[in-house]
Amino acid sequence: MTRAALLVLADGRFPAGGHAHSGGAEAAVRAGRITDAASLESFCRGRLHTSGVVAACVAAAAALGVDPGQLDRAADARTPSPALRVAARRLGRQLMRAARATWPSPELDALASRFPKGAHQPVVLGLAARAAGLGPLDAAYCSLYEGVSGPATAVVRLLGLDPFDATGVLARLSDDMDRVAQEAVETGERVVTDGVDVLPARSAPLLEIGAEAHAAWAVRLFAS
């Protein structure tokens, strides 16, 4: 097990396209649901315990070697918004490119052949973790951390929020992330034995609705 590889994969500078996405924060800022550090924290906590849990479970299962095709379909079924499905596949494709260049592996090559336009990002993340010599817990942590650090960074740009306050929000979410990461690994292990139907299907309707509205805006800073 390598700890340094986890830092490489989890680094916000890892060139996998995340910088152009706000994780729903741009739509929430426009709707007045994020106005300051406290509301950013509520938004991130909500994301963590809904779509974040699902993504982390998918990533952990992929890292355990569950068939990516089945996981991709399961992720589709748990993502009602077409705009979010498009964003998840686009980010998956970008991560696939970065991961293949960084940790060449036959599994990632096979994934690229099967999904040339991208699989859901958490599926790719789990396989990238495997290629990097990391385990399901690492994959779950990466997924969860991206899921909240993306919105936090975006809100710094969108609202001019103090970057120290935004980083404080991430620190206060650490305990939640620890608990959800453990839960994701346990779920991932159950997927290995019982199949993808045991994946949770939690969702946040406002994230889905906001994503659909956001995708139709003529002027926006972020792709999603």
Binding site: P15, A16, G18, H19, A20, S22
Partner: peptide, 20 residues
């Protein structure tokens, strides 16, 4: 290509969207 408020990132630091 949409660049998330950072045009230089999309052409230099993280070129994946442009390559695609």
């Amino acid at each position: 290509v949409e660049t998330g408020a950072c045009p230089h990132t999309a052409i230099r630091d993280d070129i994946s969207a442009n390559l695609e």
